[in-house]
C-alpha cells in the first residue's frame, strides 16, 4: 500500500494553491465571478473589458495557473482508488482522465476572455461573442466533473475494507454533488438572467459551490482520520 500521508499533504497544499489562485484571480482581481448576467447589453460588456483591461488579464492568468493545481488531488484520489479495484483499475483511470477534462474546460475560457481583453478596440460584436463563448464554455461542461464524482462513489461503495479510502456517506454525498452539477447543460438556452442562466441559482450557485463544499468536507474527514490514526498508534505504543 502506498504511504498515504505525504500524498495527502501534497493534495492539501495543491488544493490550497488552487483556492488562492483561482478564487483570488476570478473573484477578487478580474471580477469575473460571481458571473455577470447574460442579459448585459453589448455596451456594458465592452465597457467591462475596457475599464478593467489589465486587471482582467492579470486575474485570468492567475486563475488558469490555479486550475492546474487541481490535478494532484485527482491523481492521488486515483492512486487510492486503484488499491481497491481488482484487475485493470478502470474507474481510477476514468476518474483521472475526467479530471483532465475538468481542468481543461475550467482553464480554456480564461484564454477566450483574455482574447476579448487583448484588443479592446476591436468591434463590440466580436468582444461580446468572445465573452459569450467563454461563459458558455465555462458554465456548461460540468459532466466531466460529474463523471469524476461517480467514479469516486462507485469505488468508494465497492470498498469493503474495514477502513475504506473514503467513508460511505461521503460516497453518497459525491453522488449528490454529481446531481447538483447536472443541470448545467441548460445554460445555453437562456439569454436572460434566471435560475438556469450562467449566473443562475442552479447552474452557478449550486453547481459551483456544492463541489467546493464536498472537497472541503473531504479534507476535514481526512484530517480527522489522520488525527484518530495518530492517537491509535500512540496508545498502541504504550
Amino acid at each position: 500500500m502506498t504511504e498515504r500521508k505525504p500524498l495527502i499533504i501534497v493534495a492539501v497544499v495543491s488544493m490550497l494553491m488552487t483556492t488562492i489562485l483561482y478564487a483570488g484571480g476570478m473573484f477578487y482581481i478580474s471580477g469575473f465571478l460571481p458571473p455577470p448576467s447574460p442579459g448585459l447589453s453589448q455596451l456594458e460588456v465592452v465597457g467591462f473589458y475596457q475599464q478593467n483591461h489589465t486587471a482582467i488579464i492579470a486575474g485570468l492568468t492567475m486563475a488558469f495557473v490555479g486550475t492546474g493545481f487541481m490535478l494532484p488531488l485527482c491523481v492521488i484520489g486515483s492512486v487510492f482508488m486503484a488499491e481497491v479495484e481488482e484487475g485493470f483499475p478502470y474507474f481510477s483511470v476514468m476518474q483521472a482522465l475526467s479530471a483532465l477534462a475538468t481542468v481543461i474546460f475550467t482553464a480554456l475560457p480564461n484564454f477566450i476572455w483574455m482574447t476579448a481583453a487583448f484588443r479592446v478596440d476591436r468591434s463590440p460584436e466580436l468582444i461580446t461573442m468572445l465573452h459569450d463563448l467563454g461563459w458558455i464554455m465555462w458554465a456548461t461542461p460540468s459532466w466531466g466533473f460529474a463523471f469524476q464524482l461517480i467514479c469516486v462513489a462507485v469505488v468508494g461503495l465497492k470498498d469493503k475494507r474495514p477502513k475504506p479510502f473514503i467513508s460511505r456517506w461521503m460516497s453518497y454525498l459525491a453522488l449528490w454533488v454529481a446531481v447538483g452539477v447536472a443541470p448545467t447543460p441548460l445554460v445555453p438556452f437562456f439569454i436572460e438572467a434566471g435560475p438556469f442562466a450562467w449566473n443562475g441559482l442552479f447552474t452557478f450557485w449550486v453547481a459551483f459551490f456544492s463541489p467546493i463544499f464536498w472537497i472541503a468536507l473531504l479534507f476535514v474527514v481526512i484530517a480527522n482520520d489522520i488525527r484518530a490514526g495518530q492517537q491509535e498508534t500512540v496508545t498502541g505504543s504504550i
Binding site: W176, V179, V206
Partner: peptide, 13 residues
C-alpha cells in the same frame, strides 16, 4: 444512513 443523506440532500435541491 448514506442513502438517507443523499435522499435528503436531493430533496433540498
Amino acid at each position: 444512513l448514506g442513502v438517507w443523506l443523499f435522499v435528503f440532500a436531493d430533496m433540498c435541491i
